[in-house]
Design a protein around this nucleic acid. Structure first.
Lengths: 221, 221
DNA sequence: CGCGAAATTGAGGATACTCAACATCCGTGG
DNA sequence: CCACGGATGTTGAGTATCCTCAATTTCGCG
């Protein structure tokens, strides 16, 4: 899906832009963020939207008592934070070190008039987000803990495509808040999958080896 | 939000179109659907997207064993079923009798070039859907049963705006499959809210009287 | 090597589910 | 107009899943 954006002449400098310092181009500026640094907060004026160059971003909403729901993890190539009206509707933070290109939100409105290709790309990116959100609602509303974890691992594997080994850049608490579980349940589900021989957890705990992808797919429901 | 679409010159005949028979205009054709009639199924080629004139539509996904997640109810004025690529990602059905305007999906792609106003409206509608989906993920992942029901009632009241009385056009099973609960839990939560004096359930069971909206807002979390 | 953070494991408990019985509603037909 | 019957909704009892609280282990980093 996002290959469209990668290949698009709309973001000419995006992929080519240097990563180590803020650089500018007519359309976007690159900036680096440190681990756990806030990119924008829910309610902030939506001056920019972003494209991930490297690293992973989490976007989430909070309830007043602190309960958190991470609606998505954004991997390199993903677009997030685009709004047509006013304010951001969730908070965005860097997981580990991250490099982003920021584009002015204003350009969304003007783009429909004078930059149809950009408009089309933003619409496509928004529809990808919506499709993922719908799939995730099915997970949150109707899947068991182990089904949630299996789905999560497979989804991440598809998007990261690094062979049979999946890197988990985020902490257990992030996974839990994404899947509507607690860290303990995530941990138990992973252990259970390992005992069934479906995955293997390196001592590292930052990665997962998918030993039996077909079994995982069956467990995904 | 959708006032934009209502007021838009892009859909000139939409509001004016007769409701009782299929009529055509250059941009959309109106059609009526009976209770529980399927509008399109998940996987169907996305030839049309729709705007609700009257009635309520449910869109949902199924797991292989029949578990269902209703991602949204679509009320008059709402747009649903817009896809940039190929197939519909969920099934849509009429709840009770419904009247819809269908627009060719093809127009989405061409619109970015020759109908910027339409492109803008579709993007806005998609972003409204995404915003609702994100809010709903917070509900599904992190709210208790009674918080879910309170949130649902308030949300419906906001969108239907019929004073203190909210019509529930959908059955308990639909509410349950939307909130990630069972019908029994929905029923118990409603009874509980009634016992607390926050709402009142007419013998009808097709409506709810919001007696203490502030209390409901507090229960929403 | 030792400390703090993160993850795992365990025991017990709460929330929501399952299964079941009962009540109510509503359309149908006598 | 009322009685019947299926569908829908409510209520209850018991249970399973996941959560909470707590202890322990492991990891990452000085």
């Amino acid at each position: 899906m996002l290959a469209t954006l990668d290949a698009s002449p709309v973001f000419p400098r995006a992929s080519a832009t240097r990563n180590d310092a803020a650089t500018r181009s007519p359309l976007g500026s690159t900036r680096a963020y440190r681990k756990d640094e806030e990119i924008f907060a829910e309610g902030d004026d939506a001056e920019y939207f972003y494209r991930v160059l490297s690293g992973v971003v989490r976007t989430y909403k909070l309830l007043s008592d602190g309960r958190r729901q991470i609606d998505a993890f954004h991997l390199p190539g993903d677009i997030f934070g685009a709004e047509t009206h006013g304010a951001h509707r969730f908070t965005a933070e860097a997981i580990g070190d991250v490099s982003l290109v920021g584009y002015r939100s204003r350009s969304i409105e003007t783009a429909t008039l004078d930059n149809p290709a950009l408009a089309r790309d933003i619409l496509a990116a928004t529809m990808v987000s919506l499709a993922r959100a719908q799939e995730h609602m099915l997970l949150l509303g109707r899947k068991s803990a182990s089904e949630k974890v299996a789905t999560f691992l497979l989804g991440l594997a598809e998007r990261m495509t690094s062979g049979g080994i999946v890197d988990l850049p985020m902490a257990r608490i992030d996974i839990a808040d994404h899947l509507g579980l607690t860290i303990e349940t995530v941990s138990r589900s992973l252990t259970q999958l390992e005992r069934r021989g479906v995955i293997s957890l390196p001592a590292n705990r930052r990665g997962v080896v998918l030993k039996d992808r077909d079994a995982l797919k069956r467990l995904r429901a």
